[in-house]
Design a protein around this nucleic acid. Structure first.
Length: 642
RNA sequence: GCCGUUGUAGCUCAGUGGUAGAGCACUUCCUUGGUAAGGAAGAGGUCAAGAGUUCAAUUCUCUUCAACGGCUCCA
């Protein structure tokens, strides 16, 4: 007998060689039906794998992350089985579970696969699943495994085998399909009740674009039809919140083939949001001791040779234009221009920290396949600033920048974010990173210390730094689950020297300033894309392109509505009148759907009493107010940016 | 850049080898109303662009462009 410890601390005895499924059955049949896998001593195991020694066991069901991923991984095997039966001779690479489902990479030998094939595969998978084939685990000696895949002619699996040691190789078989796999898997295919193959994509072998491109099929599966339907419904809902859809619907931005890919045309409504964001940034930066500058969109090649950007980033810059033998580049970053402003005057330690801010327009020649709505574009407006400071001031300045981030996050209600400390990879010094090993370690330690001192939660990642120094990237998630880097806060110990930037220190010597690059609001493009999804288009009052819509009950009250409109406009409130000869119900509906924060209904009573009947978007009728009271209240709400 | 899919009215989408339709939106008229859709009429499309096959192409083929889903990349 062996002792099994359950999550609640209970210890039960079972015969040696029992398995998690047996354990579940001993607790209840209902539980046994739901068990997908089990966490045995911290490792996820098949529910049917024999347990030989005392162990702590946590049974996993669909509701556990480990259960879900096992379920999806097993569905990937089921898909492979279906693929193999329909396309004999296919070779497989890997088929993991991912955040929402699974995929399998395969070499179809040059064969193309269509949407129709996916439907056929789904049907085949459903058929195979219904057979309730067991997933059978088998430990295989390396020589035998190699022989198996040599017979099959699958060089991808042979490649995988190279890195595996004899004695740790396992095969899993379900129905007629055997795969090299460390597992774990669900007990049998019967519990896969609903599935959908979602899309086909090319994926480079081992993620390297120099390698052959394999065919990747994505899918998702569920233990019931109901859950699949819910998932599909969720996707529909997410679509409605997509910034590309909302941006068009709300007249925020447009794009045009003739202007060019990835080049955003900001429409009047989008421009209002841009101006409000800039107002916020300017106020905040002014209070924090920044000074504003304005710099050109282009510069000579030599500027980027000095900065060191050219060799690292030329491919991401628009090709140069040549005038009288001199090459000019559209700027992809603002820092070199700002450095030249620093260099334009002699600087004393008394001038530092010098903080230069600009909503700079940058152009980046992103690969065409990378462009994505507002999130990834070729012309962007960055909430940029560079702080030139001494080493002594660094911690204080870096900390102040972090606090600015947090201030913005509060304003926009961003509570899901991760600060990612991006470090250099020492093996790439001189290639991807400036070859200053000691400065790297020193600045990385400085940044880490600030994060620790301020109790800022962060993760560290290797090989993600800028070429000139470590950085903090802020990862955020939009309301529909899109993750991206919003903002970045970087330390730069390299460009100061490259530009020979200097200040006179208190001992009358010369020092090179450290530079902090920071962009808390990222770019207008990405940030507004984020905000659209974050708010589902229902912007808070201060950002809403149209803040108030006046809805006269009939034509008779348009005159009075116009006088109210005057009062609102005099108070700098963005308002307009719906003077269509429509019924009030219709006007309310249209205004609600247009996501206007306030509606003022104006009829006989309001006109006589110099009042307005106020309706708040999403909340409905909130009563009658004097015009002056309404203006005062709304003004204060706008000012608070709440 | 690579793999795959898609491209018909402002939007969402039907449809056909014989030069096109619906709903919503839009315009005009009627209606003048009290908190989420009043009625009627009208206008609107080189069917992404170019080439080929054909008596005839929006439809079939090819190329280009763009968008979308991924991969790779992302200062």
């Amino acid at each position: 007998m062996i002792k099994i410890t359950l999550p609640d601390g209970a210890v039960r005895e079972y015969p040696e060689g029992t398995n998690s499924m047996e354990i579940a059955k001993s607790i209840s049949e209902g539980l046994a039906r739901k068990v997908i896998a089990a966490n045995v001593n911290g490792e996820i195991w098949d529910a049917t794998r024999p347990i030989r020694n005392d162990a702590s066991v946590n049974l996993l069901t669909w509701n556990d992350a480990g259960g879900k991923s096992t379920f999806w991984h097993s569905t990937a095997h089921l898909m492979a089985e279906a693929v193999e039966s329909i396309f004999p001779g296919v070779k497989f690479w890997v088929g993991p579970a991912i955040e929402n489902g699974f995929y399998y990479d395969m070499d179809l030998g040059g064969r193309q696969i269509s949407e129709e094939d996916l439907r056929n595969l789904e049907a085949k998978m459903t058929e195979l699943a219904a057979r309730q084939n067991k997933y059978i685990r088998k430990e295989v000696p390396k020589a035998e495994a190699i022989h198996f895949f040599q017979e099959k002619g699958d060089e991808y699996k042979l490649d995988l085998l190279q890195n595996l040691k004899d004695g740790e190789i396992t095969f899993y078989t379900q129905g007629g399909f055997t795969d090299l796999c460390r597992g774990p898997h669900i007990p049998d295919t019967g519990i896969i009740k609903a599935l959908k193959l979602t899309n086909i994509a090319g994926a480079y072998w081992k993620g390297n674009e120099k390698n052959k491109q394999l065919t990747r099929i994505y899918g998702v599966s569920f233990p019931s039809k109901k859950e699949l339907d819910e998932y599909l419904l969720m996707l529909e809902e997410a679509k409605k919140r997509d910034h590309r859809k909302l941006g068009k619907e709300m007249g925020i931005y447009t794009m045009d083939d003739e202007v060019g890919q990835g080049l955003i045309l900001w429409m009047p409504n989008g421009t209002i949001i841009i101006e409000e964001l800039e107002k916020l940034a300017k106020e905040t930066e002014q209070a924090a001791g920044y000074q504003r500058v304005v710099t050109p969109h282009i510069a000579k090649e030599s500027l980027y040779l000095t900065s060191g950007h050219l060799p690292y980033y030329q491919e991401s810059m628009y090709p140069p234009m040549e005038l009288d033998g001199t090459k000019y580049y559209l700027k992809a970053m603002n820092c070199p221009h700002h450095h030249k402003i620093f260099a334009a005057e002699p600087r004393s330690y008394k001038d530092l920290p010098l903080r230069l801010a600009e909503y700079g327009t940058c152009y980046r020649f992103e690969q065409s396949g990378e462009l994505f709505g507002l999130m990834r574009v070729r012309c962007l407006h960055m909430n940029d600033a560079h702080i030139y400071c001494s080493k002594e001031d660094f911690a204080k300045e870096f900390r102040a920048v972090n606090e600015m981030y947090l201030k913005y996050f509060r304003i926009f209600g961003i509570d899901k974010y991760v600060m990612r400390l991006s470090l250099h990879d020492p093996s790439k010094l001189g290639v991807k990173y400036v070859n200053e090993p000691e400065l790297w370690l020193e600045t990385e330690a400085m940044v880490r210390k600030v994060l620790k001192d301020t109790n800022t939660p962060f993760v560290e990642v290797l090989d993600e730094a800028a070429f000139y120094g470590p950085k903090i990237d802020v990862q955020i998630w939009s309301a529909i689950g899109r993750e991206f880097t919003l903002a970045t806060n970087q330390v730069d110990f390299a460009q100061g020297r490259r530009f020979k930037l200097e200040f006179t220190n208190s001992e009358n010597g010369h020092d090179t300033p450290l530079i902090i690059h920071r962009a808390p609001l990222g770019t207008h493009e990405r940030f507004i894309g984020f905000l659209l999804e974050h708010y589902a288009g229902k912007f808070p009052l201060w950002l809403a392109p149209l803040q108030v819509k006046l809805l006269p009950i009939s034509d008779k009250y348009v005159g009075y509505a116009q006088s109210v409109l005057e009062s609102l406009k005099n108070a700098d409130i963005r308002a307009s009148i719906d003077d269509r000869s429509e019924k009030i119900g219709r006007k309310i509906r249209d205004t609600e759907l247009a996501r206007v924060p306030f509606m003022l209904i104006i009829g006989e009573k309001e006109m006589n009493d110099h009042q307005v009947s106020v309706r708040r978007q999403g909340k409905g009728d909130i009563g009658v107010q004097d015009v002056e009271t309404f203006v005062r209240d709304i003004k204060s709400e706008i000012k608070l940016r709440s």
